[in-house]
């Protein structure tokens, strides 16, 4: 399953927003099903086998509310990612939604860019879970062969850099601090902070010129992302 053929379910009752999102996501190459009321969404999602790769769910719906739908869905479907869209605003609702099994949260109003980025990220995370292939922009990694390709060209890396990049790819879009890298990537080696900086520096050089960047977020760590 590639991102281009992914089927999205959009549950949103506001006609303007629903139409706009439908158009935008269709333009981005997704197949989109749109539902306008909570009861219909409940019927669709509360039974197994709905076949959607991602659900965009408004919380404030006519009929059953988004949280109720989410709860019912999570009883049998643990995998399908859910992105909550709501005007409820405050951060406390996010906690409730995430507790019930939502994967991400977007408060209205939001920029279309932001939404598309989140959708991409969620679909990608799903791929990590089941596939043997990792993709971040034009960077690919085959976990079976342990080989990287960047912009169609093969990228050969020493083992430590290879392990480091693979880990960062798995957590693309998420800042990873040194402590975490030391624990998960270099757990059976004795490396200092400076050594990690050296490897990060080397990776940056290798990725230079591609659409990928390896940023340092002050205080949070290193972040791999695709400019595309």
């Amino acid at each position: 399953m590639t991102p281009d053929t992914a089927s999205l379910l959009l549950v949103e009752d506001d006609a303007l927003l629903a139409d706009t999102l439908y158009d935008a996501l269709s333009l981005a190459g997704y197949r989109v099903d749109a539902l306008e009321d909570g009861d219909a969404a409940f019927t669709r999602l509360a039974t197994p086998g709905h076949g959607h790769a991602l659900v965009l769910l408004d919380l404030n719906l006519p009929g059953r509310g988004g949280l109720e739908i989410l709860d019912a869905m999570r009883r049998h479907d643990q995998d399908t990612p859910v992105l909550i869209l709501t005007a409820r605003g405050a951060i406390e609702d996010r906690v409730k939604g995430l507790d019930l099994g939502a994967d991400d949260y977007l408060a209205k109003p939001f920029a279309l860019d932001e939404l598309e980025a989140r959708v991409r990220a969620l679909l990608r995370r799903r791929q990590h879970d089941d596939g043997t292939q990792l993709h971040v922009g034009t960077l690919h990694f085959d976990t079976l062969t342990q080989r990287f390709t960047l912009d169609e060209a093969s990228l050969d890396l020493p083992p430590r850099e290879q392990r480091l990049l693979a880990y960062l790819m798995r957590h693309a879009g998420e800042p990873i601090d040194k402590a975490r890298l030391l624990e998960h990537v270099f757990s059976n080696e004795t490396l200092g902070d400076n050594a990690i900086e050296v490897y990060i520096h080397r990776l940056r050089r290798r990725l230079a010129g591609s659409s990928l960047t390896l940023r340092t977020v002050r205080g949070l760590g290193y972040l791999l992302e695709s400019e595309a």
Binding site: D113, E114, A117
Partner: peptide, 14 residues
Amino acid sequence: LSSSHRAGIDLGVE
């Protein structure tokens, strides 16, 4: 983070 990054702002935490 992402919106700041798009706006070219260096956002960090200490």
